[in-house]
């Protein structure tokens, strides 16, 4: 569905003085600084996949999405949407995609939501019948029906994002790109958005690529993660496999009857509070049961809890990676 081949993007930042003089100078004398935002990405996304695209700030996620959606021309390399080069055949290829950037909107700020939809209906030549049907589906998932008559500028962020998601789905795209869609959303809207992604994926088989900082989004939605840093691929694979590889440990919280801190040779103590001690141990070294057995021989145990090794650790590691 999406093929990304040897993709590079450099931004040219011109440093120039202020005012007319600076502008004229910039026109003739190029004092450019080059920012290498994406440095040789290669991957393939199949039909119906939901892929989490993550990495620290400035790692090139948005730049990559913009190249995949035809907004930016790659410096080199190519993006194929369903076999079509999106840079060369932009007008044809973008029919197959929908795009939502969390911080921006494609809706007309001054008009009622339905007016923006009407324009899109013309642009994508959507039959009235199909339009009604899609709107009904979107209404059942997102409750967007009651927003149709509302001017976009009067909407809350959550409502606006619902409007944008619906707008992006009106022409039933094969792929949906979402760049930080949950940023700033309240819990209810976040929940609705996740439900939306799951359902369009299940009902329409829509392929979804999303960037997010939100652990819950990834945990609930993505089977596959692509982690990039400095515009380079760090990880690409099954979520649980990546967790296994990057964070092959677990955390065991043990509550004792007294304020004791028993140690174990193969476990590291992470924290102590009141009677609870948290141990971190490698899955390869021993099982949780073995650790509990050893500790209970030292002191009586009141309660235990296992924290499954962490997607949050992955996210933390991914987002804290040094450039």
């Amino acid at each position: 569905m999406i093929t990304v081949r040897d993709l590079y993007k450099e931004y040219r930042v011109t440093e120039r003085g202020r005012g007319l003089g600076g502008t004229l100078k910039a026109l003739f004398k190029q004092e450019e600084k080059i920012i290498k935002a994406v440095n040789g990405l290669d991957f393939y996304v199949g039909k119906g996949e939901i892929v989490g695209f993550i990495g620290p700030n400035g790692s090139g996620k948005s730049t990559t999405i913009k190249m995949m959606t035809g907004i930016l021309a790659p410096t080199s390399g190519e993006v194929l949407i369903d076999g079509r080069n999106i840079t060369r055949y932009r007008k044809e290829a973008v029919r197959d995609i929908g795009v939502v950037f969390g911080q921006r909107t494609q809706l007309n700020w001054d008009l009622r939501l339905e007016e923006s939809f009407e324009l899109l209906r013309h642009i994508y030549r959507i039959e009235k019948k199909d339009y009604r049907e899609t709107l009904e589906v979107m209404d059942s998932i997102l409750g967007v029906g009651e927003l149709l008559n509302k001017p976009v500028r009067q909407m809350s962020l959550g409502q606006r994002v619902k409007g944008d998601l619906t707008a992006a789905m009106l022409h039933s795209p094969k792929v949906l790109f979402l760049d930080e869609p949950t940023i700033g959303l309240d819990v209810g809207s976040k929940y609705a958005l996740r439900k939306f992604i799951k359902e369009i994926n299940a009902i329409k088989g829509t392929t979804v690529i999303l960037t997010t900082h939100d652990l819950g989004d990834i945990q609930e939605l993505c089977e596959r993660l692509i982690i990039i840093n400095g515009g380079v691929m760090m990880e690409d694979g099954n979520l649980s496999e990546i967790v296994e590889r990057i964070a092959p440990y677990r955390t065991l919280a043990v509550e004792y009857y007294d304020a004791v801190v028993p140690e174990h040779a193969k476990a590291e103590i992470l924290s102590v509070s009141d009677n609870v001690v948290r141990y971190k141990f490698m899955k390869a070294d021993m099982t949780a049961a073995e650790l509990i057995r050893d500790l209970s021989e030292l002191y009586p145990i009141k309660d235990v809890g296992i924290e499954e090794a962490g997607i949050d650790d992955i996210i933390r590691i991914a987002y804290e990676m040094k450039k």
């Binding site: 035809g70 932009r90 973008v94 029919r95 795009v99």
Partner: peptide, 13 residues
Amino acid sequence: EGEFDRFLTRPLS
């Protein structure tokens, strides 16, 4: 301001 973004993602000139 990057305002051409939304035009570029639509199948029109």
